[in-house]
Design a protein around this nucleic acid. Structure first.
Lengths: 187, 187
DNA sequence: GAGTGTTATTCAACTTGGTTGATTTGTCAA
DNA sequence: TTGACAAATCAACCAAGTTGAATAACACTC
C-alpha cells in the first residue's frame, strides 16, 4: 500500500483542480501545456496535485497558456454538485393532490440532466394516471412491492428490483397493496 | 508518420466502442478487465479498436467480465425498456481486481441515456481512483455509509443520503470503514 | 552584505494505461 | 494432410503522468 502523499494544502484550495479540469477540457497534455507556459510537465503535475503552490507570477503564465484569467482559476467554483439528506435539508416532504408523497432531491441547482425523486406511499395512496412524457425513467424499489405497467407489460417489482423504460411509453402503477418506497430518476 | 491501420470494419459496427465505454464507466483498466475475462490486454485493446472481431465465445466471456449480456453489447440500438432483478437476471455480480462489486443494470450502451449501477462493497474493499469523466452522476446510499469526495469537498453519506454532481469534477470514495451499498446513476 | 531556511523548479527515472508488430494457435475448407 | 486465415499471445514500444533527489531562487535574520 503506498503512502497518501503530503498533498500540500498550502494555498488556494482547489486551484490545481481547476487547472487540471480546464486543461483536460481543452484536451491538452501536461507536457504540451507546460511547454506552452514555459515550465516543465513535472511542475505542472505538482501544481495540479496541490503538491506545490505557485507564486502569482507563475500562475499568470499558466493562466495565459490556458487562455484564461488568474481570477477564474482562483475562484473555486465548486462546480455543480450538491448533497441531500432527504430526511432533513433539501428533501422536504410534499403531499400532492392525488395523495402520494414526493421527496424531490433537486432543490436548487438548475441545469441538471437527471431529476431524481424519492417516492414514499402508503397502501392505497398511490394512484397515478396513465402517464407518458418525453425522456427516460429509471426506477429502483427500496422497500415494499408494486406492479408497474409499461406499455402492455406488467412488471411485478419488489424491494431491490429495478426498471428502465422509455417514458414515452404509457406507464403507471397499480393501486398499492402495501406500503412502497422507491427511487425514480427521470432524464 | 505511422500507418493508419486497417481498422477492420468486419463485424458489428460499434461493438468495440460499446465495450470501451462500459469498461471506462466502471473505471477499470484494459489489463484488469482482460484478466477478469481470461484474455490479454493486447487482445482487448484490439477488440475495442475494431482491429479484431471476437467470436461469440469470446464475447460471452467479455460480457460476463463486464457484468452485462452479449446482446446489450451487440445491440447498437437498444432503447426499449427492461426490468431487472439484480438478484438474478441481468444483474450479475462481478468482482473486479480492486475488490468492488458491480451490478450493472444494463442501461447505457445503445440508446439509453442513463447508466445505473448498484455497488456493493465490503469494508475496505472499495478503492476507486480519482475519477473524472463527461456527464453527471447521481448517488443514493442504500445501506452503510461512506465519505465521498467531489472536487475539494468531502461528503459524509449515510443510508438514505443522496448526492448529485458533475462528473467532470474529480470524485472518489474514501476507503470504507464499513460495508456500503449504493446506487449510482450516470448520464 | 553573508548565512540560513524555505519553497519553487528542473531533471531523470519510474509507473501505468494503452498500442502495435511479429509470432503462435486454432479452425475450417479443400 | 495441407493451406489459408483470423484470433490470441508475447514482448517491445509509446505516451501521459508521477515522484524523489538535486538545484535555483527567494525571503528572512544577523
Amino acid at each position: 500500500m503506498s503512502r497518501a502523499k503530503p498533498a500540500k494544502t498550502g494555498g488556494i484550495e482547489g486551484l490545481g483542480r481547476a487547472i487540471r479540469r480546464l486543461r483536460r477540457q481543452q484536451g491538452r497534455t501536461l507536457e504540451e501545456t507546460a511547454k506552452a507556459s514555459g515550465y516543465t510537465k513535472s511542475l505542472l503535475s505538482k501544481i495540479e496535485n496541490g503538491r506545490v503552490v505557485p507564486p502569482i507570477a507563475t500562475l499568470v503564465r499558466l493562466a495565459r497558456a490556458l487562455g484564461t484569467s488568474v481570477a477564474s482559476l482562483v475562484q473555486d467554483d465548486g462546480g455543480a454538485s450538491a448533497a441531500f439528506d432527504p430526511g432533513s435539508a433539501a428533501g422536504k416532504a410534499v403531499q400532492t393532490e392525488k395523495g402520494y408523497f414526493v421527496f424531490p432531491f433537486g432543490g436548487g441547482y438548475g441545469n441538471k440532466k437527471m431529476q431524481p425523486f424519492l417516492f414514499i406511499a402508503r397502501k392505497g395512496e398511490l394512484k397515478m394516471d396513465q402517464l407518458s412524457h418525453e425522456g427516460e425513467e429509471f426506477i429502483y424499489v427500496l422497500k415494499g412491492a408494486m406492479t408497474f405497467h409499461v406499455g402492455s407489460v406488467a412488471y411485478r417489482l419488489a424491494s431491490g428490483d429495478a426498471l428502465y423504460f422509455n417514458a414515452l411509453e404509457e406507464h403507471h402503477v397499480e393501486p398499492l397493496t402495501k406500503e412502497v418506497r422507491y427511487l425514480d430518476v427521470f432524464v
